[in-house]
Design a protein around this nucleic acid. Structure first.
Length: 418
RNA sequence: GGGGGAAUGUCCCGAGCGGCAAAGGGGGCGGACUGUAAAUCCGCUGGCUAAGCCUUCGUAGGUUCGAGUCCUACUUCCCCCA
C-alpha cells in the first residue's frame, strides 16, 4: 500500500488525508472510482437519537465520495438495531422499541442532510434501512439461500471471534449471527443499488470481508472493503467526549458554541490530523497551518473550530461562536452571545443564592458540587472568585443586564432576569 | 439437573474484622504552570443553604442497640460436574 499511487480523486483524497486504514483491493477500487462507478455504503446504528463526533469520520468519507463523483449510501441499521449489536462486550444492551428506533432514525437523517445531497441523480445519496429486507427474512429460507454460504470454520478464525474464544469469553449465537446479517446487507445493497464497496471503522474489517465473501458465493460482482483508522486523541483518549458527555452533531443536543469549543480545545498534536479529517480545507492550507508552532498553533485551532462548526451548524453559527470566543477569551468581556439562563424578575429581586444560581445555570450538578468548587476556587461571579457560599446575587450585580457566572476558565453562563 | 462463586458509591474497575458516607485506582471536574494545548504537581469526586439531617452496597424479608458485612428466599451473571 505504501507504494500505491491512486489515480482516482477519491482514493487520492482519502489517502492523503489519512482516512485509509485497510483496503481489500486498492487497484480495483481505484479503477471503479476513476470510472465514476463507485457506489459505497456505511452502516449506522439507530441506538441514539442523533450522531456524535465519533461518527463524523465515516460521514466525512461518504461526503468525500460524493464530492469526487461517487454515490454514497448511508445505511440505517433499523433492522439490526432491533436485535442489538452485542459486540460492545459484556454490556447487555437494552432492546430498543421500534418507535424509539424510528425516532432515532429521523434524528440521524437530519445530520446526514447537512453533509450529503440526497435525490435520484447519479451521485445523489440514498438512505435505505436494512429493516426493509431483514425483517422480512424467513429463517428457513435464509438458512437455505444465504446461511449455507457461511463457513463456520472461517468465521472461527476471524479476530473478533478468535480472540473471544481464546480468552474464554462468552460469544452469543446472536453475536455470531450479527456479521451474517451485515454480510447479507452488503449483498442486498449490491442487488438494490449496485453498491460495490463497504466502508467502516477498522473494527468492521472482518464483517465487511465476510460480506465480500458472501457476495462472491452468491454471484455478485467483485465487492470491496475499505476501513478507516480507529480514532483516538493524541493522548489516547476516545474521541468526542467532554464533561457533558458525547459531542452531538445536532444544535439542540450540543450548541454550536460548545461544538466550536470542543474543536478549539483540541490537543496540539491532533490539530493537523483533525484539519485533514474534519475539514474540507485544501491540503496546502492545512500544511501552512500545521507548520505553526508554539502558541501560534492556536490560530490553527481556531480555523479547525470554524471549519468543523461550519460543516455542522453553518457558517454563520460558526462565526458567531468564534466572535463569542474572541470577546470572552481575548478581550475578557462578557459576550452577550454566551449561553444564557433566565430567571424571573421576582426571583432576582428577592435575591438568588450563589449555590442555587450556579446549579440553575447548569454549571454544577448540585449545590454540594458548587460548595466544593468554591473551596477549590473554581467559581466566579462577574469574574470575581466566589468566597462565601452563602452569598446572594441581586439585581445590583447585573452588568449590562446580566450576571456572568463562570466555572473554571472556560465555562461561562450569563444569568439574566426577565 | 447437581455443585461452587459473584453482584459495592447508578461513569468504570475494585477493597471492605458487625459501628461505614464505605480503602485504592481509572475517568471526570477544579487549581497552579502555560497558549482556552500536552506533560507535571495539588485539591475535589452521594443529596440537602449543611457543626446537623437524609438516601446509598442486586431484590425482599429476618437476626442484632447497630448489617455492605450474619441468616432465609428470590433475581441476574460466571465457573465446574452431568
Amino acid at each position: 500500500m505504501a507504494d500505491f499511487r491512486p489515480k482516482s480523486e477519491f482514493l487520492a483524497a482519502l489517502i492523503e488525508r489519512g482516512y485509509l486504514h485497510q483496503c481489500s483491493d486498492l487497484e480495483g477500487l481505484d479503477a471503479k472510482a476513476r470510472a465514476g462507478e463507485l457506489i459505497a455504503y456505511i452502516g449506522f446504528d439507530c441506538t441514539a437519537p442523533s450522531l456524535h463526533v465519533g461518527s463524523l469520520l465515516p460521514i466525512m468519507m461518504l461526503s468525500w465520495l460524493q464530492k469526487t463523483g461517487g454515490k454514497p449510501v448511508p445505511l440505517m441499521g433499523g433492522g439490526t438495531t432491533r436485535v442489538g449489536d452485542p459486540s460492545g462486550k459484556d454490556e447487555a444492551r437494552k432492546i430498543l422499541s421500534i418507535e424509539a428506533i424510528e425516532e432515532n432514525k429521523d434524528g440521524i437523517k437530519r445530520v446526514f442532510s447537512k453533509f450529503l445531497k440526497f435525490g435520484d441523480g447519479k451521485t445523489d445519496a440514498v438512505m435505505p434501512d436494512n429493516a426493509e429486507w431483514l425483517t422480512k427474512l424467513n429463517y428457513i429460507d435464509f438458512l437455505r439461500d444465504v446461511g449455507r454460504h457461511f463457513s463456520v470454520n472461517r468465521m472461527m478464525s476471524m479476530d473478533s471471534v478468535k480472540l473471544r474464544l481464546e480468552r474464554d469469553q462468552e460469544l452469543s449465537f446472536i453475536e455470531f449471527n450479527y456479521m451474517c446479517l451485515q454480510a447479507y446487507d452488503f449483498v442486498e445493497l449490491n442487488k438494490r443499488y449496485g453498491c460495490i464497496a463497504q466502508m467502516g471503522g477498522s473494527d468492521q474489517w472482518g464483517n465487511i470481508v465476510t460480506g465480500i465473501d458472501l457476495g462472491r458465493r452468491m454471484g455478485t460482482p467483485q465487492l470491496y472493503a475499505l476501513t478507516s483508522p480507529l480514532l483516538t486523541t493524541a493522548s489516547g483518549q476516545k474521541m468526542g467526549k467532554t464533561h457533558s458527555g458525547a459531542v452531538w452533531l445536532e444544535a439542540d443536543m450540543c450548541s454550536p458554541w460548545d461544538y466550536w469549543q470542543f474543536w478549539r480545545n483540541a490537543e496540539d498534536a491532533d490539530v493537523a490530523r483533525f484539519l485533514k479529517l474534519f475539514t474540507f480545507l485544501p491540503m496546502d492550507e492545512i500544511a501552512r497551518l500545521a507548520a505553526l508552532g508554539g502558541a501560534e498553533i492556536n490560530e490553527a485551532k481556531k480555523v479547525l473550530a470554524n471549519e468543523a462548526t461550519a460543516l455542522v451548524h453553518g457558517r454563520e453559527a460558526a462565526e458567531q461562536a468564534a466572535e463569542t470566543a474572541r470577546k470572552t477569551f481575548e478581550e475578557g468581556v462578557a459576550a452577550d452571545t454566551l449561553p444564557t439562563v433566565e430567571i424571573s424578575a421576582a426571583e432576582m429581586d428577592a435575591g438568588v443564592g450563589v449555590l442555587t444560581a450556579f446549579v440553575q445555570a447548569g454549571l454544577v450538578a448540585s449545590t454540594g458540587e458548587a460548595r466544593r468548587q468554591i473551596k477549590g476556587g473554581g467559581l466566579r461571579v462577574n469574574d470575581a472568585p466566589v468566597a462565601d457560599e452563602r452569598g446572594v446575587l441581586r439585581a445590583a450585580d447585573l452588568r449590562d443586564g446580566a450576571i456572568k457566572l463562570s466555572l473554571g476558565k472556560k465555562k461561562h453562563v450569563l444569568l439574566k432576569s426577565k
